[in-house]
Design a protein around this nucleic acid. Structure first.
Length: 450
RNA sequence: GCCCAGGUAGUGUAGUGGCCUAUCAUGUCGGCCUGUCACGCCGACGACUCGGAUUCGAAUUCCGACCUGGGCGCCA
């Protein structure tokens, strides 16, 4: 075989270290002088003797101006084949120009087409023509090039980083628990069955039972951020079949302690986003980003029902679940984050601790945003025999819970915790209309790809 | 699971029986253009989800399939 002479065109890591010269577009200022940028061709405006390229990387957009009579011949040859969304590398002099976006523009000395984009594009990145969410999700890699989408996920990243920092600062241990489990443990939601060699298995709906076992292990404060799976056939803008749960469990604490922790976290997250993500919020056209104030009101369940029944046509009474219409009515009344506390024991899971003074209500709570539920939690039952009775009272067989119940016989501390839906948190924080906007590759009733 | 709405160029749309050789925008291609910033102007290209039925005639009505969005339920 004849050897084709290798021409090193794009040696990003070679001794020439060309990539080292590249700077993010947002760092190009009128004072920069000479610079090299890499990015995607966002738009081209060809005026004849003068061509404007808008070049985008994840940090922003810069105008590259080509006066045809003044740039090297090689630049003119190379721009001929450039299509929208192609990857290019450009070096040249930065000039301060009032007329240009950002007050600066680059006039190229070199202009390389690194990776040509095919056309037509599956959707319009510039968004002169809007695309349906479904179309966008089909081509999520392209959709995610749009500054507003990049902004959502950079804010989500900031939120997740801040959750880690917040919990590590308070002495939490980060854990990872199985997503493949043996049985439907919690009841409530439907589980996805999977093939696990010769055994029946499921994808886990929640790390709940494992968090509690680790209280039995003496970890005292744990958190896990991971996927949860719900096999419900819902078709709404606020449900996913694979979601991200921020889960916390704390020993020697009660429901009030972990509600305090949760509201402090929420305030911290909003505050950090307000402080660090101004550009991203700007891309999302969010001008009045408000940091919620703690403490959040703690509304007893029976009062929540009263508010709902006063505003709804359909009857709702004590003991009913709070449905969509009730949730909306109460949210409009509260007009801020709030907790619903003191739920009827009957409609909460078996692991929620009943009150001493009135066992018909329990130490469970939901954290609500005016639009929807964000989190639910409780002080848990830590007494083995009570837990067995509660499991049985829900119509479940305690024998199936042996792996979970055993730790409760060997020194289980009192404990409390919660699970917070990450996508719902981001959705409500940024006022996104559909939860699918808050996750890169949503899994819903109809979507399994990409 | 129940209910409602929908499927027309790459993308987003107009079109409710003949005037559709299907509208508009964006895009792509070609031409003109040195300060655009949704650049502008001229020209071209490109589509009725599939199958069946009704009718002289169907993008349009009916039936079925497939796909999608939304509401409710359930759920976090």
């Amino acid at each position: 075989m004849r050897r084709v002479p290798h021409k090193p065109i794009y040696l990003f890591t070679s001794h020439t270290c060309r990539i080292c010269m590249r700077i993010p577009v947002s760092e190009v200022t009128p004072e920069t002088g000479r610079a090299e940028i890499c990015g995607w061709v966002h738009e081209v405006r060809d005026l004849g003797g003068l061509v404007f390229f808008l070049v985008r990387d994840r940090s922003g957009i810069i105008q590259v101006t080509i006066p045809k009579k003044k740039v090297p011949q090689s630049v003119l040859e190379n721009i001929r084949d450039v299509s929208r969304e192609s990857v290019v590398r450009i070096s040249g002099q930065v000039k301060a120009i009032d007329k240009a976006p950002g007050g600066r523009e680059m006039v190229p000395e070199t202009f390389e087409l690194i990776s040509r984009s095919a056309s037509p594009l599956p959707l319009d990145v510039v968004e002169k023509v809007p695309a349906d969410l479904d179309t966008r999700l089909d081509s999520r890699f392209l959709d995610a090039r749009r500054p507003r989408v990049t902004s959502v996920f950079s804010i989500r990243s900031t939120v997740m980083r801040t959750v880690h920092e917040f919990l590590f600062q308070r002495g939490f241990i980060n854990i990872s628990t199985p997503k493949i489990v043996a049985a439907a443990t919690e009841g409530g939601t439907e589980l996805f069955p999977i093939a696990y060699f010769e055994k029946e298995a499921f994808l886990n709906q929640s790390p709940q039972l494992y968090k509690q076992m680790l209280m039995g292990a003496g970890f005292e404060k744990v958190f896990e951020i991971g996927p949860i799976f719900r096999a419900e056939e819902h078709n709404t803008t606020k449900h996913l079949n694979e979601a991200t749960s921020i889960d916390v469990e704390v020993s020697f604490s009660d429901q009030n302690d972990v509600m305090d922790l949760l509201e402090e976290l929420i305030v911290k997250l909003y505050g950090t986003v307000a402080g660090e993500c101004q550009d991203a919020l700007g891309n999302l056209e969010i001008k009045d980003f408000e940091v919620p104030k703690s403490p959040f009101p703690r509304l007893p369940y029976h009062e929540a029902i009263e508010i709902a029944s006063a505003h709804l046509d359909e009857p709702i009474q004590y003991g009913d679940d709070i449905g969509t219409a009730a949730e909306k009515a109460i949210g409009e009344e509260m007009h801020q984050h709030y907790f619903i506390v003191d739920w009827p024991t009957e409609i909460k899971p078996y692991y929620a601790m009943p009150h001493d003074h009135d066992p018909t209500i329990c130490k469970a709570f939901d954290l609500m945003h005016p639009r929807m539920e964000l989190s639910s939690g409780a002080q848990r039952v830590h007494q083995h025999d009570l837990l067995v009775r509660q499991i049985a009272s829900k119509g479940l067989n305690p024998d199936n819970f042996e792996f979970y119940l055993t730790p409760f016989r060997y020194g289980m501390p009192p404990h409390a915790g919660w699970g917070l839906g990450a996508e719902r948190l981001v959705m409500t924080m940024l006022d996104l209309s559909n939860i699918r906007e808050a996750i890169l590759f949503p899994r819903d009733r109809h979507r399994l790809v990409p």
